[in-house]
C-alpha cells in the first residue's frame, strides 16, 4: 500500500499571474510522517504552492492532489493551514475562535489549545482586536496546531514572533503532529528550523531546484542546509 502514503501529489503544476510565472510545471510527491522545509527566497513561489494545496487558487495547468483528492471539502478537513497573514476578525474573543474551530473541525482538540494559550500566557477572554501582532500570530499558530490533521501547511510560521517564543512554537509543532502526519513549512529562517527537518525543497523562480532528505544533503554535499541554501541562492 505504497499509494496510501502519498499525501501530496503535484504533476506539472503551474500557476501564472498575468505574465508572471509563479510556479512552473512542478512535479512533487510527498509522503506522510515527514517534516518538510519549503525553502526559497521571497517571490520564489512558496506561498503560491501552499495556496494551491489549499485550493485558495486554481492551477493554470497541471494537477494537485492532497490525500488523493483535489483540494476541496475533504482536503480542508484533513489539512491544517496557517496562512502568512492574519485572518482574525475583530469582533471575536480568543475563546470564540476556539469555539469556531471546534465547531468546524472534528479533529480540533480544545484542551490542547487551552493548554497552549496558558503556556504562552494568552488570556482566552481577550478580544482578538486588542492583541498585539505577535500575539495574534501565536493565537493562529495555536489553533492550527491544535488539530489532529494529516497535513500541516505552515506558511512562514515563525517570522513574526520573538526568538524565545520561536523555540516554544517549534517544540509545539514538533510535539503536536502525530507520527503519520506531515508538516510542510515554508520559511527563509533556515538556521532556526534546520535541526528538525527531514526533507527540504528548494524553490527558485517557481522551479524546484532540489528535493532531498536532509541526511542526504549532509552526506553528499558535506554541508548544512543553511550553507547549501546560501550557496544555491547566492546573489
Amino acid at each position: 500500500m505504497e499509494q496510501k502514503n502519498e499525501l501530496i501529489v503535484c504533476t506539472g503544476l503551474s500557476k501564472t499571474y498575468g505574465s508572471v510565472k509563479a510556479l512552473d510545471s512542478l512535479d512533487l510527491t510527498l509522503g506522510g510522517g515527514r517534516f518538510i522545509g519549503l525553502l526559497g527566497p521571497n517571490g520564489s513561489g512558496k506561498t503560491t504552492l501552499i495556496k494551491l494545496l489549499n485550493g485558495l487558487i486554481q492551477p493554470t495547468a497541471g494537477s494537485v492532489l492532497v490525500d488523493g483528492q483535489t483540494p476541496g471539502v475533504h482536503t480542508h478537513s484533513v489539512v491544517s493551514y496557517l496562512p502568512d497573514r492574519g485572518y482574525l476578525n475583530d469582533w471575536m474573543r480568543v475563546s470564540d475562535l476556539i469555539d469556531f474551530f471546534a465547531d468546524f473541525y472534528a479533529d480540533f482538540d480544545r484542551v490542547k489549545a487551552n493548554d497552549m494559550l496558558k503556556s504562552l500566557q494568552i488570556n482566552a477572554l481577550d478580544r482578538l482586536k486588542t492583541l498585539s501582532k505577535g500575539t495574534k500570530e501565536k493565537v493562529q499558530l495555536i489553533v492550527t496546531m491544535s488539530r489532529k490533521a494529516k497535513l500541516f501547511l505552515l506558511d512562514e510560521p515563525i517570522a513574526g514572533v520573538d526568538p524565545a517564543a520561536r523555540d516554544y512554537i517549534l517544540n509545539t509543532i514538533l510535539s503536536n503532529y502525530s507520527e503519520d502526519a506531515s508538516v510542510l513549512l515554508s520559511t527563509h529562517l533556515i538556521a532556526d528550523i534546520e535541526r528538525v527537518l527531514d526533507e527540504v525543497i528548494f524553490l527558485k523562480n517557481g522551479v524546484m531546484t532540489l528535493h532531498e532528505s536532509v541526511d542526504t544533503i549532509r552526506e553528499e554535499h558535506g554541508k548544512s542546509v543553511d550553507m547549501l541554501f546560501r550557496e544555491v541562492f547566492a546573489c
Partner: peptide, 18 residues
C-alpha cells in the same frame, strides 16, 4: 467583502464547507 474576499477569506475558504 471582508469575510470572504478580505484576509478573513484565508480562514473561511479553508473550512471544510463548499
Amino acid at each position: 467583502y471582508k469575510n470572504l474576499l478580505g484576509d478573513e477569506g484565508y480562514l473561511m475558504f479553508t473550512l471544510p464547507v463548499t
